[in-house]
Amino acid sequence: MWDVRALLEGQKRYSYVVPGEFSAGVKVFDLAYFPKEDRLAIASDQGFYTRVPGRITHWTIEGLKEAWHVGISPDGRFMAVIGNFERRGLRAETKAVVWEVLRK
């Protein structure tokens, strides 16, 4: 997470998601921010995560091995993840899963 203003001023100011908050060895493939809120969707080789400041949630998605792409609709209502899904006795399958995002 880089401070854009600091970057433009030539400073290297950042905070980063540290081990403990995020499992070590996670390889991030894709990132997308939800519109109008500080929520980041993270597709990785360990599955799918969302992050709000100070908190990361790992979403347990049945069969998902790796999440490669994440997309969020402009109104933030829908979120799609493309990834590799396990199938019993068969080769893993690449598919997209779309969720409706409900806010409490």
Partner: peptide, 23 residues
């Protein structure tokens, strides 16, 4: 967190895709 909590409800599964994608 100050950001509201979310719940995800699966609405579709799309097969025979490779990606990437975009809304």
């Amino acid at each position: 967190s100050a950001v509201p909590k979310i719940e995800l409800t699966r609405v579709a599964t799309i097969r025979r895709v490779r990606g990437p994608m975009s809304f």
